[in-house]
Amino acid sequence: MSRPRTLSGRYARTAYLFLTPAILFFAAFFYLPIGNVVATSFRTGPQADQWTGLGNYTQALADPAVRHSFLVTVAFSVLVVIGSIVLGLVLALALDQPLKGRVVFRVLLLVPYLTSVAIVGLLWRNILDPELGVLNRMLDALGLPGQQWLNTAPLLTIAAVTLWQNVGYTMVLFLAGLQGIPETYHEAAKIDGADGWTRFWRITLPLLAPTTLFVSVMAVISGLQAFGQAYIITNGGPGDATDLSVFHIFNVAFRTRDFGYSSAQSVLLLVVIVAFTLVQLRAGRRGEVTY
């Protein structure tokens, strides 16, 4: 066996030796599947083995059910993003104050983030159940009119449930952002006579822009791929009111068993997510604030 003569050559060999498992893993479980999902998206039939070219794509773009589920998903993501930013920031601002018991509040607010979507979904379906749910039984016992939120405002309701789970996470991100703003900025502004409100709009918010961007990117990405909320809480209903895209793709793939058509829809949604991420990151880079 010939040994590489240069030092860097020797280290390159070590590097590749150490990398081998990772290269094999990402090739087999990321790049091969991505190639396959694209290949399958050009095929049709129960075995997804007949070439159809762009057939699945033209069908998907014209399919009212696909369009509807995409719009539902976008609306859901928008609700989650706005809620995450507003609630996460408000709670972070409150926790950023010198209060006793901050750690306790932080823990309590973060707890739902650690639960499985299975717990969140089942628990809230029980609480909100129109007849058997604890909320309506309590309202009823108090002589108050019952609510039918899962029927009257299903999308808003599952967005609220998603926020219930995730708000602690965005709060922690904002808290880290707030703690990264140098105290001297506020001191200087105070000396200049700026009140709390002005300081919030002129100092805190602009300096938090990178955090806000990160929170919104993460919330959009996770919103666009939400699945459990529809699968567990609403089964996509009532009607198709909460037919989130990934739930729709899941049903086309594993209930209708149309792998070609569902693959094409996966690719389309992926393109949207990647495009969105890149646009947001680029916009963020332009608006970045430097100290």
């Binding site: 990402f26 790049y31 991505i34 396959n36 399958t40 594993f254 792998f259």
Partner: peptide
């Protein structure tokens, strides 16, 4: 090195649902 690192980071943008169907077939 840089090519591989970019290829690695690119997988961050691939949500699980994209891999779901091909992984099932695999």
């Amino acid at each position: 090195r840089n090519t591989l690192f970019v290829a690695l980071l690119a997988t961050l943008m691939v949500p699980f649902f994209v891999r779901m169907i091909p992984l099932y077939v695999l």
